[in-house]
Simulated scan of single mutants.
Amino acid sequence: MKISTKGRYGLTIMMDLASRFGQGPIPLKRVAERHDLSEHYLEQLIAPLRNAGLVRSIRGAYGGYKLAKAPEEITAGDIIRVLEGPISPVEFTDEDNPARRDLWKRIRDAIATELDSTTLTMLIQFNSDGNNENYMFYI
């Protein structure tokens, strides 16, 4: 399964908001500047995250975005599903060879289990222990 820039940048946005949880709304422009990303692209990603109830938007001069729940309540799986769709390494049907279909299901389930057991809190703790410049996720 390959995670696109949507998923990777979405995780970056959410990790940035998680690392500043409780500090009030964060302007998306600041997130873009901190990670050298396109603010316009991040605006496209934040909308589905807001619609899914993962972030809240605050209007006004001191507005921005903040997590809708605590970082330990939001998983990488929540974010990836919103931005990438269902988690599946390949398309398979009931007509596929049963052994091959079983293998793809086990791979899908293992990926989903790992994503669903990895919270934003865990990701930002891991990141604070290592290099802050580039996020690299291995599953």
Score class of each variant (00 low, 15 high):
residue 1 M to P: 06
residue 4 S to T: 13
residue 4 S to M: 01
residue 5 T to M: 09
residue 5 T to C: 00
residue 5 T to Q: 09
residue 7 G to F: 07
residue 9 Y to C: 07
residue 11 L to E: 02
residue 12 T to P: 00
residue 13 I to M: 12
residue 14 M to R: 06
residue 15 M to C: 07
residue 22 G to I: 08
residue 25 P to V: 05
residue 25 P to D: 00
residue 27 P to S: 05
residue 27 P to N: 06
residue 30 R to P: 00
residue 30 R to T: 10
residue 31 V to E: 02
residue 31 V to F: 00
residue 33 E to M: 04
residue 36 D to P: 02
residue 38 S to N: 10
residue 40 H to S: 05
residue 42 L to W: 05
residue 43 E to M: 08
residue 43 E to S: 12
residue 45 L to N: 12
residue 46 I to S: 04
residue 46 I to P: 06
residue 47 A to N: 11
residue 47 A to W: 13
residue 47 A to M: 13
residue 48 P to D: 00
residue 49 L to I: 04
residue 50 R to W: 00
residue 51 N to C: 06
residue 52 A to S: 10
residue 52 A to D: 06
residue 53 G to F: 02
residue 54 L to N: 02
residue 55 V to I: 08
residue 56 R to G: 00
residue 56 R to F: 03
residue 56 R to V: 09
residue 62 Y to S: 13
residue 62 Y to R: 14
residue 62 Y to C: 06
residue 63 G to Y: 01
residue 66 K to C: 12
residue 66 K to H: 09
residue 67 L to H: 10
residue 68 A to E: 03
residue 70 A to W: 00
residue 70 A to Y: 01
residue 70 A to D: 06
residue 72 E to N: 15
residue 73 E to N: 13
residue 73 E to H: 13
residue 74 I to D: 07
residue 75 T to A: 01
residue 75 T to V: 02
residue 75 T to K: 07
residue 77 G to E: 07
residue 81 R to T: 12
residue 82 V to P: 02
residue 82 V to K: 00
residue 82 V to M: 01
residue 82 V to T: 11
residue 83 L to H: 11
residue 84 E to F: 05
residue 84 E to I: 04
residue 86 P to W: 00
residue 86 P to T: 04
residue 87 I to K: 00
residue 90 V to F: 05
residue 90 V to W: 04
residue 91 E to V: 13
residue 91 E to Q: 14
residue 92 F to W: 12
residue 92 F to C: 08
residue 92 F to A: 08
residue 95 E to T: 07
residue 96 D to M: 10
residue 96 D to E: 04
residue 96 D to Y: 02
residue 98 P to L: 02
residue 101 R to P: 01
residue 104 W to Y: 15
residue 106 R to L: 07
residue 107 I to E: 07
residue 108 R to Y: 03
residue 108 R to F: 03
residue 108 R to W: 02
residue 109 D to S: 01
residue 110 A to P: 00
residue 111 I to L: 07
residue 113 T to S: 09
residue 113 T to C: 03
residue 113 T to Q: 13
residue 114 E to K: 15
residue 114 E to L: 13
residue 117 S to I: 10
residue 117 S to R: 15
residue 119 T to K: 08
residue 119 T to R: 07
residue 119 T to S: 12
residue 122 M to D: 14
residue 122 M to P: 02
residue 124 I to N: 06
residue 124 I to T: 11
residue 125 Q to C: 04
residue 125 Q to G: 03
residue 129 D to G: 14
residue 129 D to E: 15
residue 131 N to S: 15
residue 131 N to R: 15
residue 131 N to I: 12
residue 133 E to Q: 08
residue 134 N to F: 15
residue 134 N to M: 11
residue 134 N to Y: 11
residue 135 Y to M: 15
residue 136 M to G: 11
residue 136 M to F: 12
residue 136 M to N: 12
residue 138 Y to R: 14
residue 138 Y to H: 10
residue 138 Y to M: 13
residue 139 I to P: 01
